[in-house]
Amino acid sequence: MNQRQFLSFIATIVAVIGVGQMAQTIFVPAIPDMADGLQVDPEQLQALMAAYLIPYGLLQFIYGPVSDRIGRKPPLLFGLALFATGCLLAVMATNINTLLLATFVQGAGTAAAGALCRSIPRDHFNSEQLIRVNAFISMAVMFAPLLAPLMGGLCVAYLGWRSVYWVLLSVSLLVIAVVVFRFKESLPVQQRNFENPLSLYRHVLASRQFVLYCSCLMATLGAVVAFESVAGILYGDVLNLNPFLVSLLFILPIPGSLAGSYYASRCKSRKKLSRIAITTALSGGLVILIPALFSTVATLSLLLGSILVFFAAGALFPTFTSKAIEPFPRQAGVAGALLGGAQNLGAGVIILIMSLMPMHGQLSIGITLIVLVMIIALTLAKAAQSEMHNSQW
């Protein structure tokens, strides 16, 4: 694969995964208007992210093995079409239940991209090249949900909250066209796996390395979406900032996430990278937690804390993903599905739990971040011990 083909490949994967990531947060600046239009309490709309992430996680367990059997392109196109259907349903929603259903359909559709954006790179690359590619993909995973609120804020300011779903529908149709005309099937017929999916899942889950790094990914994504789910309410409903300013505050952590992904692509010592990332994430959690102990909600605290947390996530995502999926070239679809499904399902459960808890300003998110970072640190330590033990044998 030459440089031009490589860039085209990265652009296609980024487009495919980006549209689904946008859907997670593009509605955040619209929450006050959505609450007024649907006559519900703004905190109830936290459930939208859970309604998206849970099917996004669960359906990946199906898309992955199906793609190992029939190839990557057909399930990818089916999922994107289902996502577009969910966007159209959201445009027509007149109550929160219909909007939750539409969001569920969106998550069910984009689960295809979530699973295959991990499997497709494994079809082409391994080792350090795979980490490099996953670093670029991680930039999209972090960049899209942070940039999307700016687009959402502009839509709400000039066209109303429903326009955010018109935008998602338009982007999804464009991505479908890109996949139809630009994406070449990455899994040749002779490399497809026709084994029983359950036996494939058992094979992957039997790897202690996979399970531990997958757990790290679940906690890392949980930290990111936990912040995203409450930041819009804290910025817009508690601090009473206007939608455009809320969207700008979501964009400001982007340099941090991009810097983390770039650092991951360049750092030769995975141990050093993990240590720096975990320390940075813990610092971000403390920056958010400490003002909350004094019953304060502070814009600067939320912003600085988010930058630190997103830097850590940008650095950890490509490393954990590559470490988990690299041992499974023949089961990349299943391994990718397990990775994406487990981490998004776990993140959805975290958001659902948070939506049922009293917010108490930024206290709940501060505590949540600290707990998740400690889980990452402990699980990573076990993963390192496991790799050391395996290398001795």
Rank of each mutant, 00 (worst) to 15 (best):
Lys73Cys: 14
Leu372Asn: 09
Ile233Trp: 12
Tyr262Asn: 10
Ile120Cys: 01
Val179Ile: 11
Asn134Phe: 14
Ala298Ile: 00
Leu82Trp: 14
Leu221Ala: 12
Leu116Val: 07
His124Cys: 04
Leu82Ser: 14
Ala312His: 03
Leu378Asn: 13
Val19Ala: 01
Ser186Glu: 10
Gly71Val: 13
Phe194Leu: 13
Ser119Leu: 10
Met218Tyr: 12
Ala90Gln: 11
Met354Tyr: 12
Leu308Ser: 01
Leu130Ala: 01
Ile62Phe: 11
Thr85Lys: 01
Gly333Phe: 07
Leu356Asp: 02
His124Asp: 07
Ala281Tyr: 13
Gln129His: 14
Ala112Ile: 07
Ala115Trp: 06
Arg162Ser: 07
Ser364His: 06
Ile278Asp: 07
Leu48Met: 03
Ser322Val: 09
Ser172Glu: 02
Gly57Asp: 00
Leu88Gln: 02
Val66Glu: 00
Leu147Phe: 14
Gln21Arg: 02
Leu150Ser: 05
Thr110Ala: 10
Leu378Thr: 14
Val246Ala: 02
Leu101Met: 13
Leu300Cys: 05
Phe9Leu: 13
Gly285Lys: 12
Glu43Gly: 12
Arg270Ser: 04
Thr85Ser: 15
Gly57Lys: 08
Ile137Lys: 09
Gln129Ala: 08
Cys214Arg: 09
Gln24Ile: 10
Gly79Trp: 10
Pro42Tyr: 02
Leu372Phe: 07
Gly341Val: 10
Arg162Asn: 03
Gln46Met: 08
Ala335Arg: 11
Leu45Asn: 00
Gln106His: 08
Glu228Gln: 15
Ile96Thr: 07
Leu304Met: 14
Val211Phe: 00
Asp68Ser: 06
Ser257Leu: 01
Val230Ile: 02
Ala30Ile: 11
Ser138Arg: 11
Phe78Pro: 04
Leu130Trp: 05
Arg118Thr: 13
Thr299Asp: 09
Val297Tyr: 05
Leu338Lys: 05
Arg208Trp: 01
Phe136Pro: 05
Gly107Asn: 09
Ile26Ala: 00
Val28Cys: 05
Ile365Pro: 12
Met151Ile: 15
Ala347Glu: 03
Met151Ser: 14
Val224Thr: 12
Ser391Met: 09
Ala23His: 05
Met49Trp: 06
Ala313Asn: 07
Ser265Ala: 14
Gly336Trp: 03
Ala51Cys: 13
Phe183Leu: 15
Thr220Trp: 02
Val28Tyr: 00
Ala342Cys: 15
Ala140Ser: 00
Thr368Trp: 03
Leu168Ala: 08
Ala112Asn: 04
Pro74Tyr: 06
Leu59Asn: 09
Ile251Met: 15
Asn390Cys: 01
Leu130Lys: 10
Gln129Val: 04
Ala332Tyr: 07
Val19Thr: 08
Met139Leu: 08
Val334Ser: 13
Leu221His: 02
Ile307Pro: 07
Leu248Asn: 04
Gln392Tyr: 12
Ala15Trp: 11
Ser283Phe: 13
